[in-house]
Simulated scan of single mutants.
Amino acid sequence: MESNMVFLDVDQKNMSGKIPTSLGVLSSLEILKLNNNNFGGEIRDALQNCSNLRSIYLGDNKLSGKMPLWIGRSNVPMLSVLRLRSNYFSGHISQQLCNLDGLHILDLSNNSISGAILSKKEKAKIYIHNYGGYAYNSFEHSDNIFEHAKLTLKGEELVYNTTLYLVKIIDLSSNNLQGEIPEEISNLIFLGTLNLSMNQLSGKIPSKVGNLHWLKTLDLSYNHLLG
């Protein structure tokens, strides 16, 4: 592989085995799309060497283990898209995600993630801060590469390309999350989609959710919520 590679896309190539550690030498890599394959094992720590990563697509594989702590540290400071849906990840949501100022698509749905959405010490640092993302005019990366992604919104699969940067999503559905929905989630004023369905959440729905004026889709079904 060329070390100056910017875009690696092997979506739906029926690939298996573990994610190659050799990807760690791709220091210029910005978009990594390994989704819809049969990759197994854990996410390799070697990927933290790809410090220019803006988008990680590892959904619909057979990956397992806990979310690496390096995601959210200074290793990948420009990360804006993180899609790990439909795997076998366990453990708690990495609180390091709170450090990603530009993250605007977070999809951890359909895994086995447990625990609270936010730990007590992180409630003052609600996910993705202002959730505004970087001020891209388009989702253009180096070498004039345009990113596109298929996203499921309101039960319908849609393809986004030049407008992908406008999409603001948190999808934590179909996991084993427990506890209350943190009131601090109302600070994500630009959030467009919030899906917390099919978990073990309890307590009352925060009244300040009404402050999310850009919210188009809210799904809290199949939990143990009151009020």
Score class of each variant (00 low, 15 high):
residue 2 E to L: 13
residue 3 S to Q: 11
residue 4 N to M: 01
residue 6 V to G: 04
residue 8 L to T: 01
residue 8 L to R: 00
residue 13 K to I: 01
residue 15 M to Q: 05
residue 16 S to V: 02
residue 18 K to V: 05
residue 22 S to E: 12
residue 25 V to D: 04
residue 25 V to E: 07
residue 26 L to V: 03
residue 30 E to T: 01
residue 33 K to E: 06
residue 36 N to F: 11
residue 42 E to Q: 11
residue 42 E to S: 12
residue 44 R to D: 05
residue 46 A to C: 00
residue 49 N to A: 13
residue 52 N to K: 11
residue 58 L to M: 08
residue 59 G to F: 03
residue 61 N to E: 05
residue 63 L to E: 00
residue 63 L to P: 07
residue 69 L to V: 08
residue 69 L to R: 12
residue 70 W to E: 06
residue 73 R to D: 10
residue 85 R to A: 15
residue 85 R to V: 02
residue 85 R to N: 14
residue 88 Y to P: 00
residue 89 F to T: 09
residue 89 F to C: 07
residue 92 H to S: 10
residue 95 Q to S: 15
residue 96 Q to Y: 00
residue 106 L to D: 08
residue 110 N to C: 08
residue 117 I to L: 15
residue 118 L to C: 14
residue 123 K to S: 12
residue 125 K to F: 07
residue 126 I to N: 11
residue 126 I to S: 11
residue 127 Y to H: 14
residue 132 G to L: 10
residue 134 Y to R: 13
residue 138 S to L: 09
residue 142 S to Y: 06
residue 144 N to R: 13
residue 145 I to Q: 10
residue 152 T to C: 09
residue 158 L to A: 09
residue 163 T to V: 08
residue 163 T to Y: 08
residue 169 I to K: 10
residue 169 I to F: 11
residue 182 P to H: 05
residue 191 L to I: 10
residue 193 T to R: 03
residue 194 L to G: 04
residue 197 S to I: 00
residue 201 L to F: 08
residue 202 S to N: 10
residue 206 P to R: 03
residue 207 S to Y: 04
residue 212 L to I: 06
residue 212 L to P: 08
residue 217 T to H: 13
residue 219 D to R: 11
residue 222 Y to H: 15
